[in-house]
Design a protein around this nucleic acid. Structure first.
Length: 232
DNA sequence: CCAGACGTTGTT
DNA sequence: GTCTGG
DNA sequence: CCAGACGTTGTT
DNA sequence: GTCTGG
């Protein structure tokens, strides 16, 4: 799965990686949690590609309460085309969530150990996403998004059994612009990333607190020793 | 017909 | 909005 | 995802 | 245990 992400870019990097006409003004973030604003690249039909901040956690347009979004920050790629909450967004409103990396937690002996995942060379990754539009009773609009997940690859499996869908750079255009009646041809993209697409290392549990933010959160810490009973 | 769900993860 | 269950 | 609350009345 | 907030 994917429940925390980071996005730190040098000027020009986002535009270059995702083919944006203008570089969006984004502050570096090292701990973006569900319900928070997250960057999303979209390409509306006939318009320029753009990057906006959307609320992380998709709110279906028929929802009566936008707080449902807190549970909709991931969508299973295996079922996204059928699920009532996601299928319209999958057909018509796909996006790419640019990230520098993401965190996954390994559960061991009742403890939850955060690990960071990033690309070798620290380039940006493009996560497969969906977005949706929801209107408050007063007419204000909430745009929100969700990150697709796939089974873990070999690297990820040491930590967790699900992972975000990472799009190859060459498939960004196809992911963003495939017509609704052809989305069944996108399934080749909804797979675990190759093992060499990511590096990983353990990080401090300081990241557990969603209010924490800063470059120190992605610094490696020593791996805990394997579980053992210290009798003295 | 109306009522109620609509989601993922992890744990048992 | 649309589907499932009763 | 994890952390933290989980309640009401009345007063500031 | 379950929900809300970040």
């Amino acid at each position: 799965m994917c429940g925390r992400i980071t996005l730190k870019v040098v000027p020009g990097e986002l535009a270059a990686s995702f083919g944006l006409p203008v570089e969006p003004p984004l502050e570096p973030r090292y701990n973006i949690a569900p319900t928070e604003p997250v960057a999303a690249v979209r390409e509306p039909a006939g318009e320029l590609r753009r990057c906006d901040l959307l609320s992380w956690g998709l709110v279906p347009p028929w929802s009566r309460d936008p707080r449902i979004g807190a549970k909709m920050f991931n969508a299973r790629s295996e079922t996204v085309a059928e699920k009532p909450a996601f299928r319209e967004a999958f057909a018509h409103r796909r996006c790419i969530v640019p990230v520098s990396g993401f965190y996954e937690w390994r559960r061991r002996g009742g403890r939850s150990e955060p690990h960071y995942f990033a690309a070798p060379g620290d380039g940006l990754l493009g996560l497969a996403g969906l977005w949706e539009r929801w209107e408050y009773p007063g007419g204000d609009v909430l745009e929100s998004c969700s990150v697709l997940t796939a089974p873990a690859n070999r690297l990820m499996r040491r930590i967790h059994h699900r992972m975000p869908v990472i799009l190859p750079e060459g498939s960004y255009e196809r992911w963003l612009t495939t017509a609704a009646d052809e989305v069944d041809r996108l399934t080749d993209l909804l797979v675990p990333a190759p093992d060499d697409a990511l590096r990983t290392w353990p990080v401090s549990p300081a990241v557990n607190d969603a209010r924490a933010d800063g470059p120190e959160l992605v610094e490696p810490v020593h791996d805990d020793p394997p579980d053992q009973l210290n009798l003295f």
